[in-house]
Nucleic acid binder design. Structure first.
Lengths: 110, 110
DNA sequence: TTTGTATATTGCAATATTACGATAAAGGTA
DNA sequence: TACCTTTATCGTAATATTGCAATATACAAA
């Protein structure tokens, strides 16, 4: 049905999935990598850097904003986007914890 | 269009996105968590544990198999699924490396 | 062989996602 | 004021994803 049955999963499972989902598109990976590279805030150069139309970039930024991963400060005419560092660290911890669930060396079977 | 313009991104960006995407559904998170909990291989108990129909579970397993995250060994009548540990570690490293792109303390602006 | 059990596949309906042209909104500048 | 730049939103088309009933497949046991 295209709709996810979120209600049958735990809050934690849904949260991990939400974080992973927003990272599940190369454009958003590229946006975050660009944000990391240009240490200062970036504004409208994403459209030029990434090869997607302006409305498409705007939509991807919206997805990132929905999870609070980035914030946008109005700077005169344009908008200065940057990372929400605390959220990033929080999500990083959540993902890292999930990624270590198989760390038990006894976890071997086939 | 629902279709991702993969060709305009790097191989690495696409790979990170692919890994994140497969983790972007709570059912697949639940499957992996279950696999981690029952140290031994699991077979058909996923349908009972998770509240989804058998074809749906089968489809999610297929997604995980597509990325080589799990492997299924035929065990008599049923199938024994387990983690592909090497792949898991590989993907974990890739994600961890990406998640640390903002580690530079100078990365502050807003 | 027949029956039962376990898993995969097919086919379909509903919803979500991706992408972009057109347009709107908001601010700067002449 | 009029014009330009920047970003957001709307509307729409194409494709993807999720979920399940029905069915197929494969094997074991009676």
């Amino acid at each position: 049905m295209g709709i996810t049955k979120s209600e049958i999963f735990t809050k934690e499972q849904n949260q991990i999935a939400s974080i992973a989902k927003v990272l599940g598109h190369p454009a958003r990976i590229a946006i975050l990598e660009h944000l990391a590279k240009v240490k200062t805030c970036i504004c409208g150069d994403l459209v030029n850097t990434i090869g997607l139309a302006q409305p498409t970039i705007s939509q991807h930024l919206k997805e990132l904003k929905k999870l609070d991963l980035i914030k946008g400060n109005i700077e005169g005419n344009s908008i200065c986007y940057c990372l929400h560092k605390e959220k990033w660290e929080e999500f990083k911890d959540i993902l890292n914890q999930f990624l270590s669930i198989f760390s038990d060396p006894e976890n071997n079977c086939c």
